[in-house]
């Protein structure tokens, strides 16, 4: 099996020859691999392609995240974004203050200004041997972005109907970007729902506000490609619900116990995770990485529905040796 086949086999519920290794190595870390500053790459698709492809070739993992850069994501909905220094793009102006602003959320053209070129470019660069993962925000996350997170959360009590309308208004954006990702060459879609985490909102609010839009988006996009649902930090109390969205895999973060997660969701969905991006990848040593990988394999490898990954994006300050250790240990302990 090549890398792509191995990764797609797990998502399809078929047996891979070994555990695929697909870390969340994106625009934060990749530019560093060839000595580029991140801020150039956030807004320059060619730079992203070059650095993401270089990172995959350097470390040899099975799937590359062909993101468009964090900046263009809120940007596609019309939010003003600024990038300064070696930093993450900031949404400096939110779009929606009141109900009549919902009309400002137009269905974006994901192809405009070459936004999909990084995906197409990476698919071209890495060929058919390596899986390409496209990255889209959920309707819930787009809603939080265009409204501003604090106001969005306050709306849950202040004006829940408005919050629902806003999330619904963002669904077409998720669908448009998701479909374009597949058209541009993504083998799978990672749908980010970072703010739906129970580190931020209650399981009840997850079920009321985040889940219905997740399920609807996944049901539509899943016809085109397998969808991996990502929720940051703690998702333990909502894992069964996340599995019920129809996602092919759940990308879970480091606060979740992998063995308990498997118990909670059964064998019907793959798990992708969950080496701690900060305490292990950024602050740990290669030996720490190996120990964490071994533990993750012991907890989740059985059943062949596991993809070794970091829980979240590898920070720019993580040592390259730790990324190499992640892949090497993945190969060592991931054999079936």
């Amino acid at each position: 099996m090549n890398s792509r086949e191995r990764f797609l086999a797990v998502l399809a519920g078929e047996a891979p020859d070994m555990v695929p290794v697909v870390p969340v190595l994106d625009g934060y870390f990749a530019p560093k691999v060839i000595g580029r500053p991140s801020d150039l790459c956030w807004l320059d698709g060619n730079c992203l392609v070059e650095t993401l492809a270089a990172a995959q070739r350097t470390f040899g993992y099975d799937g590359a995240v062909a993101e468009m850069g964090l900046g263009p994501h809120p940007n596609v909905l019309g939010c003003r974004v600024e990038v300064e220094g070696n930093q993450v793009p900031l949404v400096v102006e939110t779009l929606v203050e009141e109900a009549r602003d919902l009309a400002k959320i137009a269905v974006p053209d994901p192809w405009r200004d070459g936004k999909m070129e990084p995906v197409r470019g990476l698919a071209r660069e890495l060929g058919r041997d390596v899986a390409i993962l496209g990255w889209v925000r959920s309707p819930f996350e787009y809603a939080a972005t265009v409204r501003g997170l604090a106001d969005f959360f306050a709306d849950f009590y202040r004006n829940p109907g408005f919050a629902h309308d806003l999330i619904r208004a963002c669904l077409p954006a998720t669908l448009a970007v998701g479909r374009a990702l597949v058209e541009a060459g993504a083998d799978a879609i990672v749908m980010k729902d970072s703010f739906a985490s129970t580190s931020m909102i209650s399981p009840d609010h997850y079920r009321e506000f985040a889940f219905p839009a997740e399920a609807q988006a996944i049901s539509e996009l899943g016809r085109q490609a397998p969808v991996i649902l990502h929720v940051c930090r703690n998702s333990m109390p909502i894992l069964p619900q996340m599995a019920a969205t129809g996602a092919a895999a759940l990308e879970i973060d480091s606060p979740v116990d992998l063995a308990l997660a498997r118990e909670a969701v059964g064998e019907g969905v793959a798990l992708k995770g969950n080496i701690d991006a900060v305490s292990v990848m950024e602050k740990g040593s290669p030996a720490d990485v190996e120990m964490a990988v071994k533990a993750a394999m012991e907890a989740a490898k059985a059943g062949r529905r596991f993809i070794l990954s970091t829980g979240d994006s590898i920070p720019v300050s993580a040592p390259s040796d730790n990324v190499a250790a992640l892949v090497n240990s993945g190969r060592k302990y991931g054999k079936y």
Partner: peptide, 11 residues
């Protein structure tokens, strides 16, 4: 409590 509940009390 979660963040929306904290924000509700802050309001």
């Amino acid at each position: 409590y979660f963040i929306p509940e904290m924000l509700r009390s802050a309001a």
